[in-house]
Design a protein around this nucleic acid. Sequence first.
DNA 1: TCCGTTCGTGCAATCGATTGCAGGGCCCGG
DNA 2: CCGGGCCCTGCAATCGATTGCACGAACGGA
Lengths: 357, 357
Amino acid sequence: MPIAGRYICGMFRPRVTLRDVARRARVHTSTASRVLNPATRELITEPIARRVTTAAEQLGYQPNPNAYSLKTNRTRTVGVIIPDIANPVFPPILRGIEDAFAESGYTAVLANTDNDGDREGTIFQEMLARRVDGLILATARRRDPLVDRCLLEKIPVVLINRTVDRGDVSFVVNDDTFGIGLAVAHLAAMGHVRIAHLSGPLTLSTGFSRHRGFVRAMKKGGLRAEPKRIGVCGGFTESEGRRAFLELRERDRTFTAVVAANDMIALGCYDAAREIGLRIPGDFSVTGFNDMPFLDKLQPSLTTVRIPHYQMGAQAARTLLARLNGGLAAVEHVTLLPELVARDSTAAPSRRTRRGR
Amino acid sequence: MPIAGRYICGMFRPRVTLRDVARRARVHTSTASRVLNPATRELITEPIARRVTTAAEQLGYQPNPNAYSLKTNRTRTVGVIIPDIANPVFPPILRGIEDAFAESGYTAVLANTDNDGDREGTIFQEMLARRVDGLILATARRRDPLVDRCLLEKIPVVLINRTVDRGDVSFVVNDDTFGIGLAVAHLAAMGHVRIAHLSGPLTLSTGFSRHRGFVRAMKKGGLRAEPKRIGVCGGFTESEGRRAFLELRERDRTFTAVVAANDMIALGCYDAAREIGLRIPGDFSVTGFNDMPFLDKLQPSLTTVRIPHYQMGAQAARTLLARLNGGLAAVEHVTLLPELVARDSTAAPSRRTRRGR
DNA sequence: TCCGTTCGTGCAATCGATTGCAGGGCCCGG
DNA sequence: CCGGGCCCTGCAATCGATTGCACGAACGGA
């Protein structure tokens, strides 16, 4: 068994423990413990407390988190489960989580599932085995067994980005309905009437509510959301966007704009348009969703809906912290407002396209 | 103090411990421990071992990592310190690390420094406080106090992507010199002679060795690496790329190609070119480095050098694991080979530019 | 038959903290 | 002057594993 300690200036120094601090301060370890723990600090009188804190400082004492966790059953660790960190929406979310946790001494442990149910289960088990105090899930489907399990087993959990249909769980999401409304209103204001929608998977709250948002916004604008002008993608991917666009165009060639459920799907539209020789925004306009990095560098730059990803992560972390510290905090639903970022992929319909082709 | 346990099927079940397993198998806890630990498994006879394993299985036993860590001083956790997860080169590296660790039971804990020295120090301290078994650093500068400290304190560490000048530390990096050589050779083959370089910070091994690689490759190709055609960026950023490009062009207007030290700097060249009305690759060619996502979507798509990021992460994790398991493993230097990805930002110099302007 | 060796298992200390409980000192009132 | 109560601090058990050491059984040889 290795001996705890570190090399300082080339010399091996055994690790400083609470005992060492107590010994130096000439008090019992329990007293030292109470001084160093903010919650019990007030139990000890000032002069003794000072002796302990100075001793701790002089020795460079750092508490052993394993001993703490073993005794208290709290690891000050939370699991963050996301589909894929390579998806550019997640890094800012993660930074938000990290920053919000930093002050409170919690650490986030990350895992990617690639949207694979089995892998999700495995990771969930491993997180529990690691004794995380809570979970932040960005992988929820509208009906999600993992979320059900968290609730059943009373594991503190906060959903992020996506949510579930059952309402008895905390989440922090973007207002997808409102966001899509922004895109539709933007297009309608430019004179578009025959607007199509390429939705994401309807089993995900994001896909579902953006789809619903599209239908509502069209109705509200006095426009018709024709079923033939709605395509459903099997995933939020470029290839699915391309496929769904081509399929859509088989059914209808009169639309003048496409509201894509996210930026990747919009990129799929770019690909398809290039293939079949259509110009954006000359032949049709496109809007995305998320405002990924580098969209402004595309040709044409993509009009999209910006989501406050960083705040989303930070808020989710705060919500979880409240639950972890406060014990049985109430279920909290937070919805953040997105904003439209108008760029060059949207323009007024040309006279030619306005007539239909 | 909360009692360890979980809710299963709505009922609270106290956590299963090694004692429970031992009791059920009618053996001592030490025996159960030895059976469940692969290293000591052979000490126990088969029939008894079987009793223990079935008992463990029936009870759904999961060892408490905190107790393990407290006793053994190993947390099976490693810290991964990177500048910024939002930089698209890091997610694939992280995935590689995660996957390579997954099998061995290690967990990576991530932290971002934003290239801030103070923050680096803080994070380093926190990692040590968390008792990580080792570190993977992607933040190294050529002379790096943090790396020095790791070596002094004998903390297992592997550098990734960037390295330091002192050679007595393990690292996994890309062959930057070779990679830049690919870009230079590609341009030279197209007929470019007056090639410029926008280097990254020379205090980073990446900036330095790409710069050196440029000079060497030019010499090797029988070309002159003129100082006036070399600009230095203060950071691997778009804005620095733009600034350095404009500055470069003040000094020299005869170059027909720019080898940028990375993709962001190349993007800065795009910005500058647009501002002053130059066309790529009509007026000059540009190459990047890293092959970030979406470069193929740019107008024009960017010729760049692809780095095997995922493998880099995986290899770094394996190198660290060898050190952690094998005790005093030798210092290991791994260099991965990049490849050229030719796209539309490079073309033969036009007759006009070939003459100089 | 008896003793020595070997092999397998149990005993108990230990890692480094937290915390309920007990005890001692001090202050104040009778 | 003495006793009771109230803080403040110390004692010791405890969390759940690992591991050096000791002990007992089984076996083989004399």
